Simulated assay, not measured.
Amino acid sequence: MTPPHLALPPADRVRSPLTGWTRAHWEALADRQLQALVPYATPKFAQYRLPGRGSWSGVVSDGLEGFARSFLLAAFRIAGAAGDADPRSWSATRWA
Rank of each mutant, 00 (worst) to 15 (best):
P39A: 08
R49P: 02
P51H: 03
Q35G: 08
D62C: 05
Y48L: 15
S55F: 01
A36K: 06
P51Q: 05
W56P: 11
Q35K: 12
R53V: 11
Y40G: 11
P43R: 12
P39T: 11
A46R: 13
L50I: 02
W56G: 12
D62H: 06
S61M: 02
R49M: 02
G54D: 01
Q35R: 15
V38G: 08
R53H: 12
P51G: 06
Q33Y: 10
A41P: 02
L34S: 09
L50M: 08
R53F: 12
L50W: 04
Q33C: 15
G54P: 01
W56Y: 12
S57E: 14
G52W: 04
Y40I: 05
P39G: 08
G63K: 00
R53Y: 09
Q33P: 06
R53G: 15
S57M: 13
L37K: 13
V38L: 15
Q47E: 13
Q35Y: 11
G52M: 05
Q33D: 12
Y40L: 11
A36Q: 04
G52T: 08
A46V: 10
L64F: 04
L64W: 04
Y40K: 11
G52P: 06
S61A: 09
R49Y: 00
G54N: 00
Y40Q: 10
A36L: 08
S61W: 03
L37Y: 11
S57N: 13
F45H: 15
Y48G: 07
R53M: 08
P51D: 03
V59S: 12
K44G: 09
P43Y: 09
D62N: 05
V59Q: 14
G63F: 01
Q33N: 10
L64A: 02
V38S: 14
R32A: 04
R32H: 13
L64Q: 04
A36N: 10
